[in-house]
Design a protein around this nucleic acid. Structure first.
Lengths: 198, 198
DNA sequence: GCGTCAAGACGAGACGTTGCGTCTCGCTGT
DNA sequence: ACAGCGAGACGCAACGTCTCGTCTTGACGC
């Protein structure tokens, strides 16, 4: 009844994930169908349905499998520079049609499937957000960030506007914009002027 | 060839938009299909395809048609209180399964259709964002906001994190969270301490 | 004014296409 | 032998196009 992972064909698994990624970048999200994946991977449809819940789960695995994963941000000591680099990289990802297509695809699946959304959050997004959070904690240790700043919210203050603008096309998504968001965020979390200690 | 709007049947138009909204709130986004809309509205499918490009366009018109539209925020003089009210209202909208379903539906369509995304932005989102921007301008006049703050970015600093958390389910979406975002944003845009003038 | 008439929008639904998810084949590898 | 495998048939649902026959409407002639 339930499949036994021990007998799973690794070649088929990899062929499926590769086919899904290729279809997404070559022909766009609408071309990513179970039947197309199966055909390109040279695989029966049942083999896909045996191991995944549906298209969204395949896409998620395909992305998670090929994610190199930077687990830690660079820490040059200059918080502003480090954050700019991260946000500019995110902007570049949204600007690149190829990378943007994958983000778009997984976002669509996320909106339509709660269970999948949880996995996307835990496996793809949390690691990235946590890396930024860790960098912010280091900055707080260094006295560059006010101690009462809610760092989880600060992280979302950085990424939220980027996602918002990408989603809504509410203006150009440029390096300047990323820098502006970093500047605003830093203004929100730098220790208050003591009016005495200068 | 191209339909003549003068001869358009207003009753059918309204029946279609009403049916689309009802299906969305009663049975969820997956139940909103052209065929279902046509059946409930007592209308031929061709009548829909004659006037709309597809499901997304119908949903957009349905939402825009029934949008009450608050064109201006309250201005109590207390910027923090006014912003909190707006963001809390947005949080409530995301929390309500009924309202959230419509937002979710139009967002999915937006992700898959660039042309539609532009219309959603102009007809549904820009008015709301501009209302907040106008309130911020008034606050700037009153000296409550630093004059060099890029207000468009500030607006996205407010809404971006909310959309981000809703989209990614990256934590609870509560009034407290909305208040926290307002506090952070205000910290970013309040005039700098002059270290002299207190 | 008023009849009439053609253009075109309308409700209804048939049609071919596509993708879904399930199923049933032998075949293969362990 | 037993599962997983490739292949693909199957029924289902929705798509988008099309073709009916009916009804509405605006333009023209009287």
């Amino acid at each position: 009844m339930t499949p036994q992972p021990a007998r799973r064909n690794e070649q088929s698994r990899r062929a499926i994930l590769t086919a899904a990624l290729e279809l997404m970048t070559e022909a766009g999200y609408s071309a990513v169908t179970i039947e197309a994946i199966a055909a390109r991977a040279g695989v029966g449809k049942q083999t896909i349905y045996r191991w995944w819940r549906g298209k969204g789960a395949v896409i998620l695995d395909a992305l998670a499998d090929n994610a190199p994963e930077v687990l830690a941000l660079p820490d040059t000591g200059d918080l502003r520079a480090d954050l700019r680099q991260v946000l500019r990289a995110t902007v570049a990802e949204f600007a690149d049609p190829r990378l943007s297509a994958t983000t778009r695809a997984i976002t669509i699946e996320t909106l339509a499937d709660d269970e999948l959304a949880d996995q996307v959050r835990d496996r793809l997004l949390r690691p990235q957000l946590n890396a930024v959070r860790t960098r912010l904690e280091a900055a707080r240790e260094a006295g560059q960030v006010r101690t009462d700043a809610p760092l989880d919210q600060v992280v979302e203050l950085l990424f939220g506007p980027l996602y918002h603008r990408w989603l809504l096309r509410n203006g150009p998504l440029t390096d300047d914009y990323a820098d502006g968001i970093v500047d605003l965020t830093l203004a929100a979390i730098t220790p208050p002027c003591t009016c005495l200690g200068i």
